[in-house]
């Protein structure tokens, strides 16, 4: 199992244990972690599973595809460490991953 920690905008922490294979978005949604809407169901077609990846993990979560870049570029609170969590696959390597959810999904 892989441990992922979600920190909400207000600082509330949610730690979940998931198996590999799914996405970070799915890890949040199936465990009832608030702050992630995932309106498109995980196909990189909206930007409502936006997260900020903690700096130390940035090298391990893979690169942004042009589609993800395009969707994120329309987000009003985009930062350098912004990702769509549906595009991050859960692997053993990500055990201990920490991401923060934005105040709003848009």
């Amino acid at each position: 199992m892989v441990n992922i920690q979600f920190i909400e905008h207000d600082g509330s922490e949610h730690s979940v244990e998931v198996s590999t294979g799914g996405s970070v978005m799915q890890a949040a949604v199936t465990n009832g972690v608030p702050g992630i809407d995932a309106d498109c169901g995980g196909s990189c077609s909206c930007a409502t599973c936006h997260v900020y990846v903690n700096e130390e993990w940035l090298g391990k979560v893979g690169e942004l595809s042009p589609t993800e870049e395009a969707m994120l570029s329309l987000s009003t609170d985009r930062k350098d460490n912004s990702r769509l969590s549906c595009q991050i696959q859960v692997t053993e390597e990500l055990d201990g991953l920490v991401v923060t959810t934005p105040e709003f999904q848009f």
């Binding site: 570029s73 329309l74 009003t76 609170d77 105040e103 709003f104 999904q105 848009f106």
Partner: peptide, 11 residues
């Protein structure tokens, strides 16, 4: 789009 969307963004 980026120019106008702030006005209807959640913030």
């Amino acid at each position: 789009r980026r120019v106008v969307q702030d006005v209807v963004a959640p913030a």
